Amino acid sequence: MPSTLYTDPRLVALYDTLNPVAADTAFYLALAEGKNHIIDLGCGTGLLACELAERGHRVVAIDPAPEMLRVARHRRNGEHVQWIEGDARALAVLSPADLLLMTGHVAQVFLDDTMFLDTLKAARYALRNGGELAFESRNPTARAWESWTPAQSRRRVNVEGIAEVEVWHDDVSGSPESGIRFNTYYRFKATDETLTSASELRFRTQDELAALLESAGFSHLSWHGDWNGAPVSASSRELIVVAR
C-alpha cells in the first residue's frame, strides 16, 4: 500500500515545502545537459520534470499516485511534459531515452530485490545505446534512521493556504536489510489535527546496488558520495550512481 504522503491531498500539498529545490536538483539538471529525451520515473509533484521541460528537454514523467500528478500537471511548464500515471511497466511503450532519472530516494521504496531488479531491467530497456540511468539511495553506513526521532527530526514549516505545520518522525523499527519502518506525523496548527503517514524503506549497500545494476545489464557505474561529486566513503550519506 502506498504511503499516504503520496495519496492524501492534505499531505501532497505539503510535499514541495518539505522537499524544495536543493543540491540534488542541481546535480540532476547538470547531468541532463546535452540530453534530449529524458524520463523521470517516480516524478512526484513534477518539480524536476517541469524544470527540465523549461530548459528545452523532451520529458516523460511517470508516477503511480494520481494526487501527485494532479499537482504536477498544474505547474508552470506542466503542459510541456508528457505525464503518465503508472510505474516502470509504462517504460515498455516509450521511445528510447537519453537519460532516465529516479530521484527522491525512490529506489528505497522497492523492498523486494526481484521487484527492484525488474524495474532496473525496464529502465535499461527504455534507454538508447549509451543512455544513462541515475538515482540515489541513502548509504546504510550513515544510519540515517537513527535520527528519525521526535527530538531530532521535529521541524515547523509554513505552507501557503495551510499555515504552520509541525512535522516529525517516530516509531522506527525493522532493519536496513529488510526494511526500516517509521511514521511521519503532521500537526496542522490551524485545526490542531494530526495526520500520520507510514513508510518503509530498504537500505542497500553499494555492493548490493552494483550487483542489481549489473544483473539488469548496466556495465559502467559511476558513484558519488554527495551531490558535489565526492567519492563514496563510510561517512557518505548518499550512494549516487550514474549507470550505462
Rank of each mutant, 00 (worst) to 15 (best):
R55L: 11
L47Y: 00
A61S: 04
E54F: 14
P64G: 13
V71E: 10
L48F: 11
R70P: 02
R55H: 03
N77C: 14
A65E: 03
V60G: 02
I62A: 08
L52V: 03
A53Q: 06
L47E: 13
G46N: 01
L52E: 04
D63W: 10
A53N: 05
D63H: 05
R76H: 15
A65D: 05
A72T: 05
V71F: 11
N77H: 15
L69M: 08
N77S: 12
R75K: 10
H57V: 00
A65Y: 06
L69H: 04
G46M: 10
R75S: 08
V59S: 02
E54S: 15
E67V: 03
C50D: 06
L52H: 01
E51T: 10
A65I: 08
V71W: 11
G78L: 12
D63K: 04
E54L: 15
V71Q: 08
M68T: 08
G78A: 11
V60Y: 02
P66C: 08
P66S: 10
L69Q: 01
E79T: 12
P64I: 07
L48R: 08
A72H: 01
R76A: 15
R70H: 13
L47F: 02
V71N: 01
G46P: 12
V71S: 07
E54I: 12
P66M: 10
E79L: 13
A53L: 04
D63I: 07
G46S: 09
M68P: 06
V59G: 04
R58T: 14
V59P: 01
L69P: 07
G46W: 08
V60C: 11
D63R: 09
H57N: 03
R55N: 02
G78K: 10
R70F: 10
V59D: 03
I62W: 05
L52W: 02
R70N: 13
V60I: 12
G56P: 04
M68F: 09
R73N: 02
E54N: 13
C50P: 09
R76E: 15
A49G: 07
D63E: 06
H57D: 00
L47V: 15
R55W: 03
A49Y: 10
R58W: 11
H80Y: 10
R76S: 15
L52Y: 02
P64N: 07
C50R: 02
A53M: 09
P66H: 01
N77D: 14
E79H: 14
E79P: 02
R76P: 13
G46H: 05
R75A: 08
A61V: 04
R75M: 12
L52I: 00
I62H: 06
E54V: 12
H57L: 00
R70M: 09
P64Q: 11
E54K: 15
E67P: 11
R75T: 03
N77Q: 14
A65K: 09
R76C: 14
P66K: 02
E79M: 08
E54W: 13
P66R: 05
A61T: 07
L48V: 12
L47M: 14
R55G: 01
G56M: 01
A72G: 05
H57Y: 01
A72V: 08
A72E: 05
G78S: 13
D63A: 07
R75V: 07
H80N: 15
H57M: 00
A53E: 03
G46I: 06
L47H: 08
R76I: 14
A72M: 10
